[in-house]
């Protein structure tokens, strides 16, 4: 039952990622990517990480991709570059040249992984991935990274305001 869900989400994630690359209209690409993210959220949930899954939906699908789409609509960028973007055979060959060996290596590496590492499934505590244990861990062990990330976000806010206000 649940492994069916795994296949379901995986296929959706991969297919919509491929679509993202293939759609010439960036808005469609963004939508595909959002769907891919939602599917990834499902995969997260399957890995006993409900909180992270929800955050994935909230942050990636709900905020980041909305922002991207918003910008696309603001720029009407699809029209500006649509007529010029054609993926010729040369570029396609280039992509294959990089993508195939790299993907091959990665997949082989993952395949080797199985023979060497013993998966530890039975030892999971009951509150694994729950929000409470997540919060305990984040605010005790990972306090400093958390604080630094919050400062980073603040800096990003200020930076964006400056960038947006400046008249180039």
């Amino acid at each position: 039952m649940e492994s069916l869900l795994f296949w379901f989400f995986s296929v959706i994630a991969v297919v919509s990622a491929v679509l993202m690359v293939c759609f010439r209209n960036p808005l469609m690409g963004a939508l595909s990517l959002a769907i891919s993210f939602l599917a990834t959220a499902g995969l997260f949930a399957l890995m006993t990480g409900p909180f992270v899954a929800i955050m994935q939906v909230l942050v990636y699908a709900g905020a980041i991709m909305v922002l991207v789409i918003f910008v696309i609509m603001l720029l009407r960028a699809d029209e500006a570059s649509l007529d010029r973007e054609r993926i010729g055979p040369f570029r396609f060959a280039l992509g294959a040249l990089i993508g195939l060996p790299f993907g091959g290596f990665l997949l082989v590496a993952v395949g080797n992984f199985g023979g060497k590492v013993e998966a530890a499934t039975s030892a999971l505590p009951p509150d694994f991935g729950s929000m409470k244990s997540f919060g305990r861990m984040l605010f005790n062990q990972y306090m400093y990274p958390f604080e630094i990330v919050s400062i980073l976000l603040l800096v990003a806010i200020i930076g964006v305001v400056v960038l947006a206000k400046r008249d180039f």
């Binding site: 690359v21 973007e85 993508g99």
Partner: peptide, 17 residues
């Protein structure tokens, strides 16, 4: 697979977004 798709997309596409 997702990562490789990202890389290939980065090389193939020209639209900054």
């Amino acid at each position: 697979v997702l990562f490789v798709i990202g890389v290939v997309g980065f090389i193939l596409r020209r639209n900054l977004i």
